[in-house]
Design a protein around this nucleic acid. Sequence first.
DNA 1: ATCGTTTGACCCCAC
DNA 2: TGTGGGGTCAAACGA
Length: 311
Amino acid sequence: MDTAWCSPVCLDLMVGLPMVREPSPGRSAGMGTRPDIASLACDRAASITNDEAKVLEAKLTQMSEENRRLAEMIAYLYRDQMARHTLDGEPHASTAASPTSKKRSRESMDTSNSGDANSSKKIGTVEAGHVDVQSPVSDGTCRRIKIKRVCTRIDPSDTSLVVKDGYQWRKYGQKVTRDNPSPRAYFRCAFAPSCPVKKKVQRSAEDSSVLEATYEGEHNHPQPTNTSELPRCATPSGPVPCSISINSSGPTITLDLTKNEAQPDLNKVCREVASPEFQGSLVEQMARVLTSDKKFTEALAAAILRKLPDY
DNA sequence: ATCGTTTGACCCCAC
DNA sequence: TGTGGGGTCAAACGA
C-alpha cells in the first residue's frame, strides 16, 4: 500500500478570491432583490472600453501563465514520484531473504539501500527507497514487511534524532552500533497501540548532516495529518496528489505530497513544475472544479464588478 | 499523576 | 558452544 508510507509535506496554495464581498454603497442601495451577479458582470463587461478590456485580458493572460507553470510543476513532481514507485516495486536482489536469516536479511537490505541513498545525495536533501522482505510469523507462514529507508539532510548541530514524517512516534531504545559512532534511536508508532510500524533513526556514518530513517512495516491506521477528507482529482495520466476545495475562506488547492512513497527533491520539483504537461493538467483540474462551483462563479463575477467603474 | 525519554540489562541470532 | 552485536524491555527520571 502506497499510503502506508507518507510524509507530512503538505502545501496549501490559496488561489481563490475572497468569498465575502465587502458591501458597495453605490451598489447595495436600491437593490431590493439580489440580481444574478454573473449576468451583471457580463452586461457590465459589454460596456467597458477597449483599453480596460486589454488590461484585463493582459492580467488574465498573466494569471493563466502562472497557473500553467504551477500546474506543470505539480505534474512533473507527481510523474517523478510515480516513476520512483515503479522502480521501487521491482524485485530487488536483496529482498529474497530467507525467513531463517533474520539478521542477515536486515543487514543486506540496509547495504543495498544505502547505495541508492548515497547516489542520490548529490541532488537533494531527501531521498527514499523501500523494499519488501519476508518475515516469518507464528503460524509458520511468511508475511511481507515493507521496509523503507529515508535520508533527510538536517542541521549538523542538531543532535536530536527526530525525523518529522507526520506520524507520532514513541522512542523505546537507543543504541550505539559498531559501524557508526552516532547512536541509533528506535521508535514505535504511537498513534495506534496495535500499529506494528517501527522506525530506526541514525546519522549517516559518511555525512553527519544526514539522518537515515528506516521504517519497518505498514501503518494500520490513517495518517494523523487530516488530508484524506478532501477529494482526489483525476488526470489523463493518473491521479495527481492534489485536491481542490472551496470553503468559506475561498478556493484552496492542496498539494498533498504525503501520498507519495518518496520525499520530493526540491530541485526536481522546480523542474517539474515548469513542464507544460503538468501545468496543463492542473489547469484542467482547476477549471473543472471552479467552473462547476456556482459560488465561485458568483464570487468571480463580483470581483470583476469591483474592478470595473461604478455604474 | 501522567506521559515520554533515557539507559542499563537482557534476549536472540549469526558467526 | 562461546562470543559479539543488534534489538527490545523496563525501571528510573524529568517535564
